[in-house]
């Protein structure tokens, strides 16, 4: 017993040293700021600044004043639509890359083409959609040229749909990547086995491929939802007057309103929503993995 504990201690020290930096970094730059944020959420706004306090007024305000919960619900709605759209588009794309493309080189090339936009500034890509969807934009010009319309349609830009379209485009790679990995990991002989057992391709997709790639879908959808939920660029660039999202509200509380306590309370609520979602996603994923063994 004694010898063992000495050994354990001897090996623990260098291990501790090895992890001291990352653990310290995580503590100092993640845990501590979250702690400060939660603490400030109980402070009181007192013009022109705010004073330390412990009261739940900020939270009460968030849940009683429609301007806050309306925006939270709207953000959740948009993030859900983006997640749905990105998944519905990203999954077939990943499927196509994995199962339809036959040559390895073409597959690698197309996969790169899906991923490459991530290297381009997010702001620039969002901005590009403005020039596509605008009244004088590429889409309207094309429709006019084709004779489909004679007056430009303004419905394409500066509304919630344009935000969903833009965010969907931006987050599709985040769905394609994990789904691609999940699909690639499915042994080909499972698909052959399914067909061998008399099940047609579509049945094979529903009963074998889809359940076995559910993990990739879950992680892709989770990442997409969380990133879309926290987005503040799309509302500013392509959103309309009804496009305010939670992140814009946060920005306003920490900037214009100079109401850090309310902003912190809002940020805490957002953090809790995201954490609940991650927890749910991890549970779903684990349940799936247990099923897969």
């Amino acid at each position: 017993m004694r010898g063992k504990s000495v050994l354990a201690r001897r090996s623990a020290l260098p291990v501790l040293g090895l992890f001291a930096l990352p653990v310290g970094w995580a503590f100092l730059l993640l845990i501590v700021p979250y702690g400060i944020m939660v603490a400030i959420s109980f402070w009181t706004r007192q013009f022109p600044l705010f004073v330390p306090d412990f009261q739940f007024g900020n939270y009460l305000q968030l849940f009683s004043d429609p301007q806050y919960y309306t925006v939270i619900l709207r953000t959740a709605k948009i993030a859900a639509l983006v997640t749905l759209a990105a998944t519905c588009l990203g999954y077939p794309l990943a499927y196509y890359l994995v199962f339809v493309i036959k040559t390895e080189r073409l597959r690698a090339l197309l996969y790169m083409l899906v991923i490459v936009p991530l290297w381009v500034s997010y702001l620039l890509r969002t901005y590009t959609w403005k020039t596509i969807l605008g009244t004088d934009g590429a889409l309207n010009s094309a429709l006019k040229w084709l004779g489909v319309i004679d007056q430009p349609i303004s419905l394409f830009l500066y509304n919630q749909w344009s935000m969903v379209i833009t965010l969907t485009y931006i987050f599709i790679p985040f769905v394609v990547m994990p789904v691609f990995a999940a699909l690639e990991n499915i042994p080909r002989n499972l698909i052959e086995a399914s067909e061998d057992l008399g099940v047609r391709p579509f049945g094979t997709f529903l009963r074998v491929i889809l359940p076995l790639s559910a993990g990739g879908v879950i992680s892709g959808a989770t990442v997409t939802f969380c990133l879309a939920f926290g987005d503040f660029v799309a509302p500013v660039l392509v959103g309309g007057p009804d496009g305010t999202m939670v992140a814009n509200l946060l920005q306003s509380q920490f900037g214009a309103a100079l109401n850090w306590p309310l902003g912190s309370a809002l940020a805490t609520v957002v953090l809790l929503i995201v954490m609940a979602l991650l927890w749910l996603s991890a549970r779903l994923d684990r349940a799936g993995r247990v099923a897969l063994g």
Binding site: P187, A193, L212, A291
Partner: peptide, 12 residues
């Protein structure tokens, strides 16, 4: 019907 080399059992 085939008995596959790696059995190809559905893990789920």
């Amino acid at each position: 019907n085939t008995v596959f080399q790696d059995y190809a059992l559905f893990p789920h």
